[in-house]
Design a binder for these strands. Structure first.
Ligand SMILES: [Mn+2]
Ligand SMILES: [Mn+2]
Ligand SMILES: [Mn+2]
Ligand SMILES: [Mn+2]
Lengths: 219, 219
DNA sequence: AAAGAAATTTAGACAAGGCTAAAATAATTT
DNA sequence: AAATTATTTTAGCCTTGTCTAAATTTCTTT
């Protein structure tokens, strides 16, 4: 069995690898809320166990074995998020926090039962894809809302699950994965982006708009 | 937040206190699967935190604060056991093992949601009472099956959840909490106890019969 | 190209929670 | 009442995962 700490490191490395490409010590330090020195010592341990490769001063990379474990934990996380929402009615801004703990204690048997209960779902409540049992995951092609030109009809693909406050706001205006909306305008001087959905216009800050992934709606 | 270790110690102390009265270092050592020396050092820590009292060489006792926490964890454990059985169909011989891990990661909010989902239940799948939110618990008066005289009609109150194999056997013969059955005979030379339920007779070893709690059935 | 700044690693420490071996105390036999 | 045995505690060590401070390497600026 792997410790919770190791699982969290592998997951964090996977996520940074996906979004930034390169995984630096400082990025991990920030994401995990530990000192850079702590990261370095854990990195050493993970390399010894062949879960990552590490070139001194050059960042780390997951090995296939490490990636498999990362995806396994992410699968737990996302299945649990969806389960909590569907089965127990936990609001979508709270599921992430709970799943952070549950992901580490989910047995394979329970994972399968939850998967079956949910009808073998492919995305979590925030639109993130759920890795398959075999350690593969389909990544959907999409853009950050902040980069979309005005006057475009888009469909929400995925919303970051890390900021409960943002999620509550988005839930309040009815902005969920699969929702279609129109980007009306981008206010000048880094002002908010105005989107229209269900007939109303709503402002979304540039910063928030970095964490909302969309795709062009067909037609 | 208390560590998982501390929670497990408090729970173990509570359980030994209930069944044995006195809580010795060696009893804790055995129950938790750690060395007596480890128990002593944790006992020191728990006393410092005023969760237990300790007289050197004389065993430990929970303080009200310690008992409150123990019952909180036991509440988690039993709610989770029942939830896993009811909501996800986990067989009753496996729920204990899963609950051992989940009891430590259950938030108060989720505890309440599960409680509500289950309709505010009062016993777990093995017949053990579920402590209330306020830290009180109703203990039902009962006897071990091994002590019951032959020719008595009894109702099963509670079965120990620690041995999956026993639980599978009991499930196989339909012996669950609330089941009524007749103690037919006690075979000599510490032989098995024969009980009759649903028209058939079944042998139950003396040792197993220590872990099956029953009460006299009315009439 | 060199200096300064930033990022990373090393060194050394610490807290938690285990362990074994030895010492101290309590309980049981003789 | 001693002697023996069992239980409990102490002493000292280990692993995991963290920290701070200092040293090293890389990046950026001049
Ligand atoms: Mn986590
Ligand atoms: Mn999510
Ligand atoms: Mn436990
Ligand atoms: Mn139980």
């Amino acid at each position: 069995m792997l410790s919770q700490s190791i699982e969290d490191y592998l997951k964090a490395i996977y996520e940074i690898e996906s979004s930034e490409g390169k995984v630096s010590t400082s990025a991990l330090s920030e994401k995990l809320g530990v000192s850079p020195a702590s990261v370095t010592s854990m990195v050493k341990k993970l390399s010894e166990r062949k879960l990552i490769t590490h070139k001194r001063y050059q960042g780390v990379k997951l090995t296939p074995a490490g990636r498999k474990i990362a995806l396994e934990i992410i699968r737990h996380h996302r299945l649990v998020e969806l389960y909590l929402k569907e089965a127990l009615g936990v609001p979508w801004d709270q599921v992430h926090q709970e799943a952070e703990k549950w992901e580490h204690v989910l047995s394979e048997d329970l994972e399968d039962r939850i998967d079956k209960f949910l009808g073998y779902p492919v995305t979590d409540p925030h639109g993130s894809p759920i890795p398959r049992r075999d350690g593969t995951m389909i990544v959907r092609q999409c853009n950050a809302l902040v980069d979309v030109e005005p006057d475009t009809l888009v469909k929400v693909v995925e919303v970051s699950d890390h900021d409960p406050e943002l999620l509550r706001y988005l839930g309040g205006i009815g902005l969920y994965p699969e929702t279609e909306m129109t980007v009306v305008s981008k206010q000048p001087f880094k002002g908010p982006i105005i989107v229209e959905l269900t007939g109303k216009e709503h402002p979304i800050g540039r910063n928030a708009a970095k964490y909302i992934m969309v795709e062009k709606a067909r037609n």
